[in-house]
Simulated scan of single mutants.
Amino acid sequence: MNFASDNVTGASTAILDAIVRSNAGPLASYGADPLSAAVTERFRALFECPDLAVFPVATGTAANAIALAALVPPFGACLCHEEAHVMTDECGAPEFFMHGAKLVGLPGEGGKIAPAALAAHLAVPARGVHHMPVRALSLSQATEGGLVYRPDEVAALSALAHEHGVAVHMDGARFANALATLGCTPAQATWRAGVDILSFGASKNGALAAEAILVFRPDLAETIAYRRKRGGHLLSKGRLLAAQLDAYLADGHWLANAAQANRMAARLARGLARLPGVRLPWPVEANEVFPILPAALDARLRAAGAVYHPWRTASLPAGESVGEGERLVRLICAFSTSETDVDALLAAAGADGA
């Protein structure tokens, strides 16, 4: 009963098979192979963007750090949610790659940045060289609270940012889960809503180790090419990254995986919500569930072998709080999570089925 993360699961069979197929024979290195070129074209078609530049990397941290470094100079600042992964879980990698630039956290319920909060920050008058100018806004899709930005919400935030000369980055570690919920096209969720760079995630949703920096602004492509190499993230055997991304995108595999994870999260949420003393402060919009549990139930689940993480309370909705004798926790479903897995946890919790 491991619901700690969608990183705890292995890779999907389709992606493992693709790696094996790509392994045979010699091919050009450092992404100059035909499969890497084909993946670029696949992404361009998927995102309806013929000028899209595609830079595969092995980790989400690399994707975020390199992307933000291309947008923010050492004397600049990047705005993000105060609980964003780039802020709290990447050991300062974005700031390291930005050579001293700062991440500045903004508040918001469920990990979402509200336009009013962004506008208020951008409205503060700059003090010349005494003030680090904001050069980027980073949005997490889905958020650290498991919520999903709608295209109109992304567009509103992007418009505010662009009015102030601020570029927009999207951390799409769970982009597939968000898109499976939104039902819109990848283009509508990104560049058509104002996103300049997307960190496109695959590792949490079936890949072995594969992400991609998708650059919608051609003027940024060259600097990212050099930064990826200089940062040690241009793999010599690039075809093995390309093979994963190719299989991930083929035949809608990425969205099918995400939809399964989302369905299991919804099933888990329904079952937990029926238990006495359990409440869900946010709706379940992707593959993450954040119940507030009675401490006794939390202890019972852990004693039964359930694995999950306690969670921060800073972005709870107004009027909601975690009382004494309660725990806010996070449970995540993966593409490989089954109804049997979910129902085992619900049974341990005392639920009567999903």
Rank of each mutant, 00 (worst) to 15 (best):
A156S: 13
L345G: 01
G111C: 08
A242E: 07
N257A: 15
A225T: 14
C91H: 15
P186W: 14
E144Q: 10
M1Q: 01
E109C: 07
I113D: 03
R302Q: 13
M170H: 08
A209G: 09
R279W: 04
V284S: 10
L157A: 05
A77T: 10
A314V: 02
H169W: 08
A207R: 12
A84H: 10
A207C: 15
A296F: 12
P281Q: 14
L147E: 02
F290S: 02
L27K: 15
A155W: 09
P74L: 07
S36P: 08
L46C: 04
S336H: 04
G76P: 02
A14M: 10
A349D: 03
G60V: 07
F97E: 11
E82Y: 14
C184D: 11
A142K: 02
W191E: 09
L35W: 13
G172S: 00
L255C: 06
M170D: 03
G231K: 05
A225R: 15
H81W: 12
E222C: 11
E41K: 14
A37Y: 04
A212E: 02
C333L: 11
Q244W: 06
E339K: 07
Q244F: 07
A173K: 08
D89N: 15
L241I: 05
L71V: 05
Y226H: 15
V307E: 02
R135A: 07
A161H: 09
R192I: 04
A28C: 00
P34G: 01
R217P: 07
L182I: 05
